[in-house]
């Protein structure tokens, strides 16, 4: 990973990026105005939130939906819209936190 402020001698040539997927280290959660809350007790594990999330911010653990990655969730609300009515396991609320990140 290229260090911030690195000089030209210390970075790979030509803009080559050698750390695949390192965007995951970049926080986009502070873009959020509304935050989804996942209610595990209502979740039917249909994975629709996972497949429709633009930000790959639905966490999956041991083959199950396990919550929201608030470090990256931008709060678009697609997951809550697409969560089946019968489950209603994701709800949107105004994000009251600091504009910083709550993980």
């Amino acid at each position: 990973m290229v260090r911030e402020g690195a000089g030209w001698r210390d970075i790979p040539r030509g803009g080559l990026i050698l750390s695949p997927g390192n965007a995951a280290r970049y926080v986009t959660g502070d873009w959020r105005t509304f935050r989804p809350t996942w209610h595990p007790e209502r979740c039917i594990q249909c994975f629709l939130c996972w497949v429709y999330c633009p930000d790959a911010a639905i966490e999956v653990k041991d083959g199950k939906v396990a919550g929201v990655d608030y470090k990256h969730c931008k709060g678009c609300g697609i997951c809550a819209t697409e969560c089946p009515d019968k489950a209603h396991a994701l709800t949107m609320e105004r994000d009251e936190g600091e504009r910083g990140v709550e993980v």
């Binding site: 390192n22 995951a24 986009t28 497949v51 429709y52 999330c53 930000d55 790959a56 931008k74 678009c76």
Partner: peptide, 22 residues
Amino acid sequence: MAAAPQLFAPGHRMCAGCGAPV
């Protein structure tokens, strides 16, 4: 699908709700 390696990482800077990353 969710169990497969995810080639598209979070932390990209597409707008919230953009259809392209989906």
